[in-house]
Simulated assay, not measured.
Amino acid sequence: MHVALWIAAGLLAAVLLVSTSKMVVPRERIAAMGGPAAQWVLDFSPVRLRVIGALELLAAAGLILPAALDVAPVLVPVTATCVAALFAGAATMRLRRGERATIVPDLLYLALAIFVAWGRFGPGQFTG
């Protein structure tokens, strides 16, 4: 169980780290490179995109560092719960925009975040 939870948390952290590129790459370039799945960035101001990117960076760190450093490991499931809320919001935004074809990755990441939160709050929690 612990290995599966570490893998899921690592995958989520990697996805979140990659998506922080919105902090430094202009939104027009992201929209042009990402195709239909990336058009949502045009709905947000550059400041809001930087805030979202900063939160994703903190989430990536919160999924890995507390457990790896054994400093407040209870932050891992709390962070996973917040990540689940982030991806639920992303899926909702895609539904509102009528982007049903691009919602699958968001739902997959949502499921991974729920799995990590459930596992670290429950059967795979860190003991210490």
Rank of each mutant, 00 (worst) to 15 (best):
E56L: 03
V41R: 13
Q39L: 13
A80D: 04
L11E: 03
A68Y: 08
V74G: 05
V104Q: 07
L12Y: 04
V47P: 00
T20W: 04
F87E: 02
R48C: 13
W6G: 00
W6F: 07
T20D: 02
A38F: 11
D106S: 15
E99S: 15
V15D: 02
V74A: 15
L86H: 08
S19G: 10
P77H: 01
M33A: 13
L55T: 10
L58A: 07
A13Y: 07
G10Y: 08
F126K: 01
D43K: 14
L5Q: 05
R100L: 14
A113G: 11
T102R: 06
G98Y: 09
R27F: 09
V51K: 02
V15T: 01
R29W: 05
L95S: 13
A4R: 09
L5W: 01
G119W: 00
P46C: 15
G89V: 14
F115I: 05
G35Q: 09
W40K: 07
T102Q: 06
A9M: 05
G10Q: 06
F115H: 05
V24I: 15
L17W: 06
F121S: 00
T81G: 12
T81V: 11
M93Y: 10
L86Q: 05
L42A: 14
V116G: 08
A113L: 13
P66D: 01
L107G: 10
A72M: 10
A54N: 06
L11R: 01
A8F: 05
A88V: 02
V25P: 08
G53I: 11
M23V: 07
A4F: 12
M33S: 11
E99P: 14
G62K: 03
V3F: 15
Q125V: 05
G62F: 04
I64F: 03
A111F: 08
L86W: 11
P36W: 10
V24R: 14
V47E: 12
I103V: 15
A101S: 11
L5P: 00
L12I: 08
V78E: 02
V51D: 02
F87Y: 14
F126W: 15
L107S: 12
G35K: 12
L57C: 09
A32Q: 14
R97K: 13
A117S: 12
